[in-house]
Design a protein around this nucleic acid. Structure first.
Length: 189
DNA sequence: ACCGATCCACAAA
DNA sequence: TTTGTGGATCGGT
């Protein structure tokens, strides 16, 4: 299944592009998936963060969450995020209800991330094509910037954007993982 | 004022 | 044909 815009709650752009003023409970879990270990965090509204991590960084998870969501009450409740991890592990999004998102970003970032959702599985696009698509034909680099700040890996498929030249391009969680994700997605199933 | 998960033109090999 | 480099670009910090 494909995530649609209606499943996403776009947090109103706050003064700061990185810090959300959202107040409430935020629960998170650390899980193992076939693409590596990941942190999944959600508010009452939806998933607000999904990041892969390497063991060294894992200890910082809570600190990083608190930095982005300073007014949230953060709790470690892996049971609450396990089902999401499980469906990623099995490469299937079976239950759309689990996958509502709660996304925070500047208007430009939201615009970029929104267009990421329209890239079908198994397909790639380029930073430039994306820039053109959102009406900023010369902003390929700025788009790369925004893509790189995507807070919800995998579900907002930033790994499907590659360089115009055909090179893979960067990935916040490692080029290898980007390649793995793409390889898997292009396989028929 | 500076930094990118970029892109293009153009030169040199 | 391939590889390297320098400048343009623009939103975010």
């Amino acid at each position: 299944m494909q995530l649609t815009d209606s499943m996403i709650h776009w947090s109103p752009a706050s003064r700061s592009p990185v810090v959300s003023s959202w107040v409430g409970q935020l629960i998170y879990g650390l899980h193992s998936t076939s693409f590596g270990d990941c942190l999944i965090a959600k508010t009452a509204i939806g998933i607000c963060q999904l990041e892969f991590f390497d063991s060294l960084i894992a200890t910082d998870a809570e600190q990083k969450l608190q930095a982005t969501w300073p007014n949230a009450e953060i709790r470690y409740q892996p049971a609450a995020t396990a089902a999401i991890a499980q469906q990623i592990l099995h490469h299937e999004i079976a239950d759309p209800e689990l996958f509502r998102l709660h996304v925070h970003g500047t208007p430009f970032q939201q615009q970029v991330w929104r267009s990421l959702l329209q890239i079908p599985r198994g397909v790639t696009t380029t930073y430039q094509a994306l820039a053109i698509a959102i009406g900023h034909p010369n902003a390929a680099r700025a788009v790369g910037n925004a893509v790189g700040k995507n807070p919800i890996a995998y579900l907002i498929p930033c790994h499907r954007v590659v360089r115009q030249s055909g090179e893979l391009g960067g990935y916040r969680w490692g080029q290898d993982r980007k390649q793995q994700l793409l390889n898997w997605e292009t396989q028929i199933r």
